[in-house]
Structures are given as structure tokens and as C-alpha cells.
């Protein structure tokens, strides 16, 4: 069995571009396999308070999308890590699908997820991702498995909806190159519980059964996010069949709490990321 994939996320431009680069390096050195970049949008409806505050501060600082792409490029060059970008739909729509994905690819982005684009609206996003060699990452939520049978617009069962999501996910994979080792060609992002992003004390009671059910429906790697902030969470989800985990809000929270002391901030982030690494799968 391969080692679990650890994805660590942060908000580009927060608390400032220079420190973002240091946070990226710290995560990579502490063992992150993929770096998640949670890009700022003025209306982050899928995010909890921790990320909302970071997004607001980034936007208030005047950090533009052009500066963001430059920063991604720098992070890619200096960490040689694969990059997973989270961007809300309007930013991509506004810049233009082709232009957005071309620029993202040129900036070192490997994977893109758009939290407010379900499969119903995904076609132009997937087409541009495919053209420019990015993996378009789709989310599956616990509610995906509670689709009412025989709805009018999508006459489907829960299993069929998951299969449709898988079909779309299989249309794109990330390009590869010699410098950056991409551990996965693509993956599915499982939202551990209904709700917004943010660290929670424990996994929701139905998370593990949810992972097991999706595992039966697809061979694609499953990465679990939302509320993952402890090694024990990761152990449990891996034993349920997931391939890895994303943690982001906890890192952003460390940034919030150590604004005035960057050295402590980086040290705390490094220790936190290391604490999540599972070196062997022995219980």
C-alpha cells in the first residue's frame, strides 16, 4: 500500500507574499506531498471563519490575481512541489476559461478545484483544464450520496451521481515534468462533512462510512478534506480507504495567531505538518 498523501493548504498573499513563500517551503520541508493554495475571493461561501478572515485581509491588502500567479510561480520554482489551486468560479469566468488555465499552467499549477462549480456547470472548466494539462478536481459531499431517486433534471441515483463525477474527473490529469514529482495524476476531493472549511475536534460520525461507500464506487484516489487537523483523523480515513488528506484551516489559524512573530509562525507550522506525517501504516 502506498504512503498516504498529505496536502497542506494556506492562503496565498497571507499574511504577505514573502511569508507565504516561507510557509510553502516550511510545509514542503516538513513533508507535505502537495501544496494547496486557497485563492482569495470576496464571497467565499464554502469557507468557514478562519479562511474568510484571511481572504478579507488579502483582498484588503490589494493583492491582485496577477501577483498571485507570480507568487505561485515562485513557490513552484523554489519548492518543486506540485500545486493544488482552489479558486472560486467567478475569478476563472471573469479572466476567461482559456486564459485562466493557461496562466495557471504556466505558473506551475497541477490541480484546480472550484468549490462552487458542481458537475452541472463543469463543462467549460474541464475543457480548458484538459487543453492546458491541469487536473480538474471534483468534490464529493456526504449529501451526494443522498440524492433523491428520479429527480427531474438529473434522473439519477446517488451511485450514478458519483459515477458521473468520476467520469468527469477522469477526463483530465496533470501534466508531468522532470522537476516536479506529482504523486497523483488526479484525485477526488471528499468533503468530510456538510458544512464549511475549518478545523473540528473530531471527524463527523458518518465520515468513515461515507469514504467506504465512495471507495466501492471508484478506483480513483480519494483525498479527504474539511475539518482534518490531527494525525488520528488521517489514520482513520486512510483505514477507511482514503489515499490522503488535506489540512488548511489549521495552518491558516496558526498564521492568524502568530502574525507578529514569523519565526514562531513557521516553526509552529513545521511542527504541525510533521505531526501529521504517517511514516508507516502499522497501527
Amino acid at each position: 500500500m502506498p504512503k498516504p498523501i498529505l496536502i497542506t493548504g494556506f492562503v496565498p498573499g497571507y499574511p504577505n507574499p514573502q511569508l507565504t513563500l516561507e510557509i510553502a517551503k516550511t510545509c514542503q520541508q516538513a513533508g507535505a506531498d502537495i501544496l494547496e493554495l486557497s485563492a482569495s475571493f470576496s464571497e467565499p461561501v464554502a469557507d468557514g471563519p478562519t479562511l474568510q478572515l484571511a481572504h478579507q485581509r488579502v483582498l484588503a491588502s490589494g493583492f491582485t490575481k496577477k501577483q498571485a500567479f507570480d507568487l505561485y510561480h515562485q513557490i513552484s520554482r523554489e519548492t518543486a512541489s506540485p500545486l493544488f489551486l482552489i479558486e472560486y468560479a467567478n475569478i476563472i469566468y471573469h479572466l476567461g476559461f482559456d486564459c485562466y488555465y493557461r496562466t495557471a499552467a504556466a505558473s506551475g499549477i497541477n490541480y484546480v478545484a472550484v468549490p462552487d462549480v458542481p458537475i452541472e456547470e463543469a463543462t467549460p472548466f474541464v475543457a480548458s483544464a484538459k487543453k492546458h494539462g491541469l487536473a480538474q478536481i471534483f468534490l464529493i459531499a456526504p449529501t451526494t450520496l443522498s440524492v433523491v431517486n428520479g429527480t427531474l433534471s438529473v434522473p439519477t441515483t446517488p451511485d450514478e451521481r458519483v459515477k458521473k463525477i468520476v467520469q468527469l474527473a477522469l477526463q483530465t490529469t496533470t501534466r508531468t515534468n522532470k522537476l516536479i514529482k506529482t504523486p497523483l495524476p488526479t484525485f477526488l476531493y471528499l468533503v468530510s462533512t456538510t458544512g464549511t472549511t475549518g478545523s473540528r475536534g473530531q471527524l463527523a460520525s458518518d465520515t468513515l462510512s461515507f469514504i467506504k461507500r465512495v471507495r466501492k464506487l471508484t478506483e480513483l484516489p480519494l483525498i479527504v478534506g474539511f475539518g482534518i487537523s490531527k494525525k488520528e483523523h488521517i489514520k482513520k480515513i486512510i483505514s477507511a480507504g482514503a489515499s490522503g488528506a488535506v489540512t488548511c484551516s489549521k495552518i491558516v489559524d496558526i498564521v492568524h495567531r502568530n502574525q507578529k512573530n514569523p519565526t514562531d509562525m513557521l516553526k509552529t507550522i513545521g511542527n504541525y505538518v510533521q505531526s501529521l506525517k504517517i511514516s508507516s501504516l502499522a497501527p
Partner: peptide, 16 residues
């Protein structure tokens, strides 16, 4: 319908 996947089943249920 530009909403998170979590809400899509609810919108489909609502349509029906």
C-alpha cells in the same frame, strides 16, 4: 446552479 456539491442534491430535491 453555481453552488458547492454539498448543496446540489438539495437543489435537485427542490426542483422535483
Amino acid at each position: 446552479q453555481y453552488v458547492p456539491e454539498t448543496l446540489m442534491p438539495a437543489l435537485l430535491e427542490l426542483e422535483t
